[in-house]
């Protein structure tokens, strides 16, 4: 049995950590949550069916992230976002002085750029953030997300599209010529 657990740990730690870091935007907390998720998987290892291991892990990680977010005080960030010019302010704050010279997409594929997107996603309200991360980062389908979050598919889609619209506002300075 222990070989199976090690295999699961190796196979899914990247996905679990990716989910956690985008949800929490904090490396230390993401590490803690990832470890917690796998320890829970170990605790319930005998009851988790093989075909649902990934979904179970991602769901557990999502719940752990939600718990962490509840402890944080991010209301002020959301209020700031709700200001008329808040979206532009946040965009500029994240990216600093934006070089508006357009370049090939490949130039953006750097760690720093990933971190910028991570910060942008962190600005989203919790429901939209979860939906965006599960759909656009973890690439789950609507049905899996609906089951995982125990939400109707319509609500899932709505959260995803609204989240993308907000993200577009934040990331706009990077893409405008």
């Amino acid at each position: 049995m222990h070989e199976q657990f090690i295999a699961i740990l190796k196979q899914y730690q990247r996905q679990v950590y990716k989910l956690a870091i985008y949800m929490l935007n904090d490396e230390e907390e993401a590490k803690d949550v990832t470890q917690e998720a796998f320890l829970k998987a170990w605790q319930f290892f005998e009851t988790i069916r093989k075909e649902t291991t990934k979904a179970w892990l991602l769901k557990t990680t999502t719940n752990l992230c939600i718990d962490r977010l509840r402890r944080r005080k991010f209301q002020s960030a959301w209020n700031e976002f709700n200001n008329e010019d808040g979206d532009v302010e946040i965009g500029n704050k994240i990216f600093g002085v934006i070089d508006k010279t357009p370049g090939p997409l490949e130039q953006c594929l750097k760690q720093e750029t990933r971190e910028l997107v991570q910060k942008a996603i962190a600005q989203l309200p919790q429901d939209y953030r979860i939906a965006i991360v599960l759909r656009d980062i973890e690439e789950l389908n609507y049905e899996d997300i609906s089951v995982m979050l125990n939400l109707p598919i319509g609500t899932v889609k709505s959260n995803i599209f609204r989240g993308r619209r907000m993200l577009k506002k934040i990331l706009r300075p990077m893409f405008e010529v």
């Binding site: 740990l9 990716k18 750097k110 990933r114 997107v117 690439e139 577009k168």
Partner: peptide, 26 residues
């Protein structure tokens, strides 16, 4: 613009997983 942002997010690289996660779990 909407398409570019959607494509951009789908191709950003995965974060580097800290090595201590594996060791700590074990």
């Amino acid at each position: 613009m909407t398409e570019r942002i959607a494509n951009f997010i789908s191709v950003i690289p995965d974060p580097q997983v800290p090595e201590e996660i594996y060791e700590n779990v074990i």
